Simulated assay, not measured.
Amino acid sequence: MDFNTYQQAALKTVQASLETEEATMVAILGLAGETGGVATAYKKQLRDGPAHQASKALIREELGDVLWYLAVLADRFGLDLDNIAAANLTKVADRWRPTPAGEFVDFDGDFPPDEQLPRTGTITFRLETDAAGRQVSRTSFDGAPFGDPLTDASFIDDWYRFHDVFHLAYAAVLGWSPVVRSLMKRKRRSNPAIDEAEDGGRAIAIEEGISAMVFAYASDHSNLEGIRTLDQGLLTTVTGMVGLLEVSVRRAADWQKAIITGFDVWRRLVADGGGTVEFDRDQQSLTVR
């Protein structure tokens, strides 16, 4: 039985003759009550164990009652269960299922090689002391300088000097990073519109803003040590910030993977005082060597 068939059949069994507002409230309270019924059935199963022979049938009955109220509520709001179910699967996939490799949109595959992000490479992060006595991070990609030497630019020693690894993680996992394009001089200048809107100053500022925001979040969450799931609110903010850019087609799950990948490498660099990282866009990975 499909959802729409079930919903239409369920609506024929509605008994109460109430005004719309009252009927909606009855359905909401009924849903809350039946959800509690599922919890009660499961409690009995936990309490009685094998002795509770009817637990599966009881839980099925309670879940059926939940489904009935969902069908009624959907109708009250002019919705149908089939569309609700489809929309929910799309939402869940965006949050929890990274884009499969075969479905990944290549943002620069049709551009000249010198305007494409690298496919693979070796990045070296090396600490040095500058003329002012400050500790700086000097980065190279396949032996060529990668940006300027960086300090933490802060009164607090928080190792933000290694933050370029976050941009490299976005490039590797998402196939996107206006910052990396700028630092490696790989902006897509053959298409002026793309160059301005996707690789220009505004896109770079958005990416730097994301990097700083996520770094602040991570600072309050053990630098993501042992954390594999990020708060939905953080991911919603990130995807909202890039809503007008090409990377908006990436899922929240892709961003979660990119952020966690970047911090996994960043923590190793901090612990080792620098190091060498293998970049692989085909494998969507950064690996400390």
Score class of each variant (00 low, 15 high):
Val92Thr: 14
Phe141Gln: 15
Pro100Gly: 04
Gly147Gln: 13
Pro178Asn: 11
His163Phe: 09
Ala144Leu: 08
Gly175Asn: 11
Ser177Lys: 10
Leu150Asn: 10
Val92Pro: 09
Arg119Thr: 09
Thr129Arg: 09
Phe162His: 12
Ala101Asp: 11
Asp164Gln: 15
Phe155Ser: 05
Ser177Asp: 13
Gly147Phe: 09
Val180Gly: 02
Arg126Tyr: 13
Thr124Phe: 00
Ser154Trp: 04
Thr129Lys: 04
Ser154Arg: 04
Ala101Phe: 12
Tyr160His: 13
Asp110Ala: 11
Pro178Phe: 10
Ser137Arg: 05
Gly147Asp: 07
Trp159Lys: 14
Phe141Cys: 14
Arg97Gly: 02
Asp152Cys: 10
Met184Pro: 00
Arg189Lys: 03
Ala101Thr: 12
Ser154Gln: 12
Val136Gln: 12
Trp96Asn: 14
Ile123Asp: 02
Asp114Pro: 06
Asp110Thr: 07
Leu150Val: 01
Ser140Arg: 10
Pro145Glu: 11
Gly121Val: 10
Val173Ala: 09
Ala171Trp: 04
Leu174Ala: 09
Gln135Pro: 00
Ala101Tyr: 03
Gly175Gln: 00
Asp142Gly: 12
Trp159Glu: 05
Val136Arg: 11
Gly109Glu: 08
Thr124Lys: 12
Val92Ser: 14
Phe146Pro: 05
Ala144His: 02
Ser137Val: 09
Ala144Asn: 04
Val179Asn: 08
Gly133Glu: 05
Gly133Leu: 01
Leu150His: 05
Arg186Trp: 06
Phe146Val: 05
Arg97Asp: 13
Glu103Cys: 03
